[in-house]
Design a protein around this nucleic acid. Structure first.
Lengths: 111, 111
DNA sequence: AGAATACTTTGCCATGTGGCTAAGTATTGT
DNA sequence: ACAATACTTAGCCACATGGCAAAGTATTCT
């Protein structure tokens, strides 16, 4: 359980940048083109594209090119991996496997 | 709304590393010393300390030294900033401010 | 055809990240 | 006192990240 997950690495890393979180927020309202998003981020296109690529690579967004315009859409489900991880942590906290409990349990079993 | 949050940057970045997520997972069972944690991460202490510092800096864990031993404890509440951010995103999705809705609303107002 | 648009590719650069070894410091055990 | 333990500090290194400008490509407009 709780194996190493490259996907979690990528998703958390993607969200660790204000520009990218702001893109996620913007796309929450609906799809937008790379140009529109880059402009609102006041950043050059090449720089901005790196953020788009990173978001796309970990599946947080999807992009498609039509003519010369690339449109980005949010993949809402992908945030689920973060929620799942947090839920997993909660499960650990709530499980009766902490040290004190373990001691008590073991002691009981021995009696 | 949804201003730039250095705390979110730090928390997400802290969680974007398997070693650090594993520390969070381990501390979910209860406090542990730096030495114990470093050993289970099969990493030298200096390297491991960087992870500890990063986790502490963003408030995900708290550490205290007693004698020559430093003990780490998880700050469960800190994961709340991630949950809040995701909740905020959900709120955006569910708000009626997407493009189609905005168009409809604006059009109605104009009539 | 030629110009304008919207990316895309390339290459550069400063800084950050994550690992190590070696040496230093403060506690604790004998 | 001396040795062992548990960090801590300092310094090095390879690679990743995040920004830019300049030049290239594919569409669309006139």
């Amino acid at each position: 359980m709780a194996k190493y997950s490259p996907l979690l690495d990528e998703v958390f890393l993607a969200l660790a940048d204000p520009t990218r979180r702001s893109v996620v927020g913007a796309l929450g309202h609906g799809p937008a083109t790379v140009g529109e998003l880059a402009q609102s981020a006041s950043m050059t296109l090449p720089s901005f594209m790196k953020h788009v690529h990173r978001l796309e690579r970990c599946g947080l967004i999807h992009t498609a090119k039509s003519g010369r315009v690339r449109t980005c859409t949010l993949n809402r489900k992908r945030l689920g991996v973060v929620e799942s991880w947090i839920a997993e942590q909660r499960a650990i906290w709530e499980s009766r496997t902490d040290r004190l409990e373990q001691f008590v349990t073991t002691t009981k079993e021995q009696s």
